[in-house]
């Protein structure tokens, strides 16, 4: 049987998660390099599944499966893993690709374990090494990259990190791909978790999304009392202060100052990152800034990978004269 790549796109609350297009784009280039057939699937319940399948069918894929199980109306790991297990056992794809979202993180390791298979999670890219398919992923918080290969039997499973591929570069097909509806039967008795309301915490007092200048502070600030120094710089620049997650976790700044995948997504003119390493979960929240300047004492810090201007040095030595220079410039 010919080798097939299956992309499971993400549907949440009846909507296609657009990050799925990034995975689809990655899958398209793997398909082009290997000659493997590319198919996609969307899982859920009711009419929305068909609608999303039709949308995906515009992309260059051989086929789209609309997987419908009444018990997948609300997301639970039990229902999703059981439904996909049925489908994958039946179709036997060689490679299954998904975006590394919170939802996929929640069910994919369960799915692969139930199939006695492994998952290469959070890959940032792939490479063909002869016949071998290598996935590249970050290790040690981005300090190293690793080439990882599959050692066991197919199906192989991998998830792609947000930003690994350009979703806007997905190739469209010359005609819409065929959509096949597949009814899966997962009994309600197999579902142990009961998902309840989805909500946001009480309204955020600070809206960082509108800020033009953001001075953002990370764990390099060492102690709560040093936050004041960063605040002074923010004030001098006429900007607002924001932070990486550990700063908010420690209560040094309130949660509504947090930038990143679990915080706010910002796009200021200037994002000045002080003592922030540049973990992917932080990057996704600020990479849209027009200009990124980073001060970090570690020349290998991943933040320099996306910064326009970088300064390797001790923020405690650089920030005080910087405040003075900014004040001078503003006064002039």
């Amino acid at each position: 049987m010919a080798d097939t790549i299956l992309v499971v796109v993400e549907q949440r609350e009846g909507k296609l998660n657009r990050v799925s297009y990034e995975t689809l784009r990655g899958a398209q280039s793997i398909a082009a390099e290997t000659g493997w057939t590319l198919e996609a699937a969307v899982l859920g319940s009711g009419a929305v599944v068909g609608e999303i399948a039709n949308e995906i069918a515009k992309s260059k894929v051989a086929k789209v499966y609309a997987l419908d199980s009444a018990t997948c109306v609300n997301y639970t790991p039990d229902a999703y893993a059981a439904a996909l297990k049925q489908f994958i056992t039946d179709k036997k794809p060689t490679l299954v690709l998904m975006p590394h979202t919170y939802q996929v993180r929640d069910f994919a390791p369960k799915l692969t374990t139930s199939l006695n298979r492994t998952l290469i999670s959070d890959a940032t890219g792939y490479r063909k090494d002869g016949a071998k398919l290598i996935f590249v992923r970050q290790m040690f918080q981005g300090k190293f990259a690793a080439d990882v290969s599959f050692a066991g039997e197919s199906p192989f499973f991998a998830t792609f990190q947000t930003g690994a591929f350009r979703g806007d570069q997905v190739e469209n097909g010359s005609a819409a791909a065929p959509v096949e509806k597949v009814i899966l039967d997962v009994p309600a008795s197999a579902i142990r978790n009961k998902p309840l309301d989805i909500f946001k915490e009480a309204k955020q007092a600070v809206d960082l999304t509108q800020a033009e200048i953001i001075v953002s502070v990370g764990r390099g600030i060492k102690e709560q009392k040093n936050i004041e120094l960063v605040q002074q710089l923010a004030t001098a620049l006429g900007g607002v202060i924001a932070a990486s997650r550990p700063i908010c976790d420690s209560g040094w700044l309130p949660m509504d100052r947090q930038v990143g995948s679990s915080g706010q997504t910002v796009a200021p003119k200037l994002y000045l990152a002080l003592g922030i390493s540049g973990a992917i979960q932080h990057i996704v929240g600020m990479k849209g800034a027009r200009s990124i300047i980073a001060i970090n004492k570690d020349s290998e810090a991943p933040i320099f990978e996306i910064a326009d201007i970088g300064i390797v040095g001790n923020l405690f030595e650089i920030v005080p004269p910087l405040i003075e220079e900014v004040k001078k410039a503003k006064g002039a």
Binding site: I120, I134, A146, S149, G152, P302, I309, I311
Partner: peptide, 22 residues
């Protein structure tokens, strides 16, 4: 047996030119 294998570990290649101030 491990079903996935680390072939090698390396410092990620920089893809962006960051202007460094010294």
């Amino acid at each position: 047996d491990n079903m996935q294998k680390i072939e090698k570990l390396y410092i990620p290649q920089k893809t962006k030119k960051t202007e460094m101030l010294t």
